[in-house]
Design a protein around this nucleic acid. Sequence first.
DNA 1: TTGCTCCTCACGTCACGTGAGGTGGC
DNA 2: TTGCTCCTCACGTCACGTGAGGTGGC
Lengths: 175, 175
Amino acid sequence: MLTVGRTARRFGLSRSTLLYYDSIGLLSPSGRSSSNYRLYSEEDLRRLELIHLYRAAGLPLADIARVLTAGRTTLREQLETRLRVLDDEIGKLRSQQRLIADLLRARVALRRTRTLDKATWVSILRASGMTDDDMRRWHVEFERVAPEAHRDFLESLGLDAPAVARIRAWSRDDR
Amino acid sequence: MLTVGRTARRFGLSRSTLLYYDSIGLLSPSGRSSSNYRLYSEEDLRRLELIHLYRAAGLPLADIARVLTAGRTTLREQLETRLRVLDDEIGKLRSQQRLIADLLRARVALRRTRTLDKATWVSILRASGMTDDDMRRWHVEFERVAPEAHRDFLESLGLDAPAVARIRAWSRDDR
DNA sequence: TTGCTCCTCACGTCACGTGAGGTGGC
DNA sequence: TTGCTCCTCACGTCACGTGAGGTGGC
């Protein structure tokens, strides 16, 4: 029977983590000492071992609780779901990386040319998740609310007068 | 001058996001209508554009606030820092993926052999970040507190009696 | 007596989302 | 009058970390 501190140290966890697990009912030590200290049994430790393992896989505590009471099928499902979520999360972080790379490169370009070019701008928007439709809506709104600023912006991208005019007309087009 | 809802829609943000930015002083609309509606000016929108961009790069709002008042050097630093943090985060998620892959493969193996083998177990522990020292400490504690369970566990990994005895002796060795 | 570990609240975190209850504008 | 948008609180989220104030054990 181990106290909180010892149990925590053995698993490389903090005491407050174990207190938290107790408070949410995920892992309540099966005993208490005469002085009301939490005492973790071998079975508690086996349970904690599993919790620790699934946490290392990034499963939320609520899912872990479910897995521990339900069977292997649930575990497999949760792990497969987590695998997909991880793919997603990594994808998002990757796009943040690409965006930052673009921004840093754009700043280098900006040092040379004093301005962003259209390709860089568009790539930045795309990297942040903007679709063609989003961009269209963005132009339309920009043109509708602040046409001068819109023109100013388009020119700042290095577009020539006809190109600016074309985009603005397209932005005013209904639908 | 745009209201909150319109501004939010234009940027694909939620109203509550803008209310939050206002509450923490990151972006306070420069005007209010007669009926106390928030009114965002063109300058506000330009500021929001930058905030949105940096958020898409994953910068925390506190850092964005700093970047907006400080200069390009700060921006560059923050972006480079963020790039390193992203490397780290992606690395962690990748190791979670590897761990899950191991767990799923282990379950397949388990279906065939009714047990985990040592290599799989060790790879799982490694994937979850355990070092040799951690493992050694783990064995020592296990042996110290629950020698029978320790033996049981070692045997469950498919180790033969001499191997189990060797590991247990090593676990009792001082230091 | 001095540390060390333990106990139980209770608040803070980060970036919002979600009501609750109520008031203007078309 | 009916929607729609707006307003200001205030609480919830996720997994803990960090005191605050106090009590056992070696």
